[in-house]
């Protein structure tokens, strides 16, 4: 358990360092949903290459770490309906709210943005209720 917390803290510092580099060097806010969404809906055409480079880094660096961190079990559900519904909700929700855990959570809270704090309170609240409902009452997840 304690190793999980230490790895969590270390990983968190790396996440924050990535956000700091993106802000101080590129002048951009590190928000995963905004960076992806801009490519999907065309609103981010003017800096598409910068967005793609960022996402390429997100997807490929974990491959290089495989030998060190070992195989990671994502424990992802095999329920196709749950996966599809969850993906749709995450996609629509993050774009409506203009941010997710990285943009509103990490980058927003750290600058004491009211929008970031309110968004985080709502997605954590909704997430908690959803897990309680679908795990303990319905037994689906």
């Amino acid at each position: 358990m304690e190793t999980d917390w230490i790895m969590g803290l270390l990983g968190g510092l790396l996440i924050g360092l990535g956000g700091a580099v993106f802000l101080l060097v590129n002048g951009r806010i590190m928000g995963a949903s905004g960076l992806i969404g801009g490519l999907v809906d065309g609103s981010g055409k003017s800096n598409a290459l910068e967005r793609l480079s960022f996402l390429l880094g997100v997807a490929t660096l974990p491959v290089l770490l495989w030998p060190l961190v070992g195989p990671i079990d994502t424990h992802i559900t095999t329920n196709l309906a749950v996966l599809a519904a969850a993906g749709l909700l995450v996609g629509v929700g993050t774009r409506l709210a203009n941010g997710c855990t990285s943009g509103h959570g990490v980058c927003g809270i750290s600058r004491l943005s009211l929008r970031g704090i309110v968004a985080t309170a709502f997605y954590i609240g909704a997430g908690g209720l959803t897990v309680v409902l679908f795990r303990h009452l319905l037994g689906v997840i």
Binding site: A86, L89, V90, A126
Partner: peptide
């Protein structure tokens, strides 16, 4: 309203699958 509704929808999906975009 978009911030609140969007965050609620996102939170539901996040809870269902345990995944967010990053």
């Amino acid at each position: 309203h978009n911030l609140v509704l969007g965050s609620v929808l996102f939170g539901m999906g996040w809870g269902l699958a345990g995944l967010c975009p990053g």
